[in-house]
Protein backbone atom coordinates (compact mmCIF):
# COMPACT_ATOMS: atom_id res chain seq x y z
CA UNK A 1 0.00 0.00 0.00
CA UNK A 2 1.50 3.28 -1.13
CA UNK A 3 1.51 6.61 0.62
CA UNK A 4 0.30 9.47 -1.53
CA UNK A 5 0.75 13.16 -0.96
CA UNK A 6 -2.51 15.02 -1.61
CA UNK A 7 -1.64 18.50 -2.89
CA UNK A 8 -4.97 19.87 -1.63
CA UNK A 9 -4.82 18.42 1.89
CA UNK A 10 -1.02 18.86 1.97
CA UNK A 11 -0.76 15.57 3.78
CA UNK A 12 0.78 12.20 2.90
CA UNK A 13 -1.92 9.61 3.33
CA UNK A 14 -2.68 5.92 2.76
CA UNK A 15 -3.46 4.80 -0.76
CA UNK A 16 -6.78 3.36 0.48
CA UNK A 17 -8.20 6.91 0.44
CA UNK A 18 -7.28 7.40 -3.23
CA UNK A 19 -8.38 6.16 -6.62
CA UNK A 20 -6.40 6.06 -9.83
CA UNK A 21 -7.95 8.04 -12.70
CA UNK A 22 -5.88 7.44 -15.83
CA UNK A 23 -3.22 9.39 -17.66
CA UNK A 24 -2.89 13.10 -16.95
CA UNK A 25 -2.78 16.01 -19.39
CA UNK A 26 -5.22 14.39 -21.83
CA UNK A 27 -7.44 17.43 -22.29
CA UNK A 28 -10.91 17.06 -23.71
CA UNK A 29 -10.94 19.06 -26.97
CA UNK A 30 -13.01 22.23 -26.86
CA UNK A 31 -15.00 21.16 -29.92
CA UNK A 32 -14.84 17.40 -30.28
CA UNK A 33 -17.02 17.42 -33.38
CA UNK A 34 -14.31 19.33 -35.25
CA UNK A 35 -11.84 16.45 -34.81
CA UNK A 36 -11.02 13.91 -37.50
CA UNK A 37 -11.60 10.25 -36.76
CA UNK A 38 -7.84 9.79 -36.26
CA UNK A 39 -7.59 12.71 -33.85
CA UNK A 40 -10.58 11.47 -31.89
CA UNK A 41 -9.13 7.96 -31.77
CA UNK A 42 -5.91 9.36 -30.35
CA UNK A 43 -7.79 11.32 -27.71
CA UNK A 44 -9.91 8.34 -26.70
CA UNK A 45 -7.52 5.44 -26.81
CA UNK A 46 -3.86 6.31 -27.35
CA UNK A 47 -1.89 6.57 -24.11
CA UNK A 48 1.82 6.93 -23.32
CA UNK A 49 2.20 3.81 -21.14
CA UNK A 50 5.85 4.61 -20.41
CA UNK A 51 8.42 2.58 -18.57
CA UNK A 52 9.57 5.20 -16.10
CA UNK A 53 8.01 8.50 -15.03
CA UNK A 54 4.31 8.58 -15.87
CA UNK A 55 2.00 11.58 -15.64
CA UNK A 56 -1.22 10.38 -14.17
CA UNK A 57 -4.34 11.47 -12.38
CA UNK A 58 -5.51 10.40 -8.96
CA UNK A 59 -8.53 11.34 -6.91
CA UNK A 60 -8.48 11.73 -3.15
CA UNK A 61 -11.90 10.17 -3.29
CA UNK A 62 -12.24 9.27 0.41
CA UNK A 63 -10.67 12.53 1.56
CA UNK A 64 -10.98 15.99 0.05
CA UNK A 65 -12.49 14.42 -3.11
CA UNK A 66 -10.25 16.40 -5.48
CA UNK A 67 -8.70 15.10 -8.67
CA UNK A 68 -5.01 15.92 -8.89
CA UNK A 69 -1.96 15.00 -10.96
CA UNK A 70 1.06 12.92 -10.11
CA UNK A 71 4.32 11.77 -11.61
CA UNK A 72 4.90 8.14 -10.71
CA UNK A 73 7.77 5.97 -11.84
CA UNK A 74 6.19 2.83 -13.28
CA UNK A 75 9.38 0.85 -12.68
CA UNK A 76 9.86 1.57 -8.99
CA UNK A 77 6.17 2.42 -8.28
CA UNK A 78 7.39 5.58 -6.55
CA UNK A 79 5.67 8.94 -6.69
CA UNK A 80 8.13 11.61 -7.82
CA UNK A 81 5.63 14.38 -7.10
CA UNK A 82 1.97 15.33 -7.01
CA UNK A 83 0.43 18.64 -8.07
CA UNK A 84 -2.95 20.28 -8.39
CA UNK A 85 -5.22 19.81 -11.39
CA UNK A 86 -4.70 22.57 -13.92
CA UNK A 87 -1.05 23.14 -13.06
CA UNK A 88 1.40 22.71 -15.95
CA UNK A 89 3.19 19.46 -16.64
CA UNK A 90 6.45 19.47 -14.66
CA UNK A 91 9.84 19.03 -16.33
CA UNK A 92 10.83 15.40 -15.90
CA UNK A 93 14.56 15.95 -16.28
CA UNK A 94 14.53 18.36 -13.34
CA UNK A 95 12.56 15.88 -11.28
CA UNK A 96 15.00 13.09 -11.97
CA UNK A 97 17.87 15.37 -11.05
CA UNK A 98 16.20 16.12 -7.73
CA UNK A 99 15.88 12.39 -7.06
Amino acid sequence: MLLIHCPYCDETLPELEFAYAGEAHVDRPADPSALSDEEWRDFLFIRANPKGPHFERWRHVHGCARFFNAVRDTVSDRFLMTYKAGEPRPDISKLEEAQ
Binding site: Y8, H60, G63, C64, A65, R66
Partner: peptide, 10 residues
Protein backbone atom coordinates in the same frame (compact mmCIF):
# COMPACT_ATOMS: atom_id res chain seq x y z
CA UNK B 1 -23.22 24.49 14.96
CA UNK B 2 -20.02 23.13 13.46
CA UNK B 3 -18.64 23.52 9.95
CA UNK B 4 -15.93 21.09 8.87
CA UNK B 5 -13.81 21.80 5.81
CA UNK B 6 -13.84 18.51 3.89
CA UNK B 7 -12.21 19.80 0.73
CA UNK B 8 -11.27 23.06 -0.98
CA UNK B 9 -14.89 23.69 -1.99
CA UNK B 10 -16.78 21.49 0.43
Amino acid sequence: RAALCLGPDE
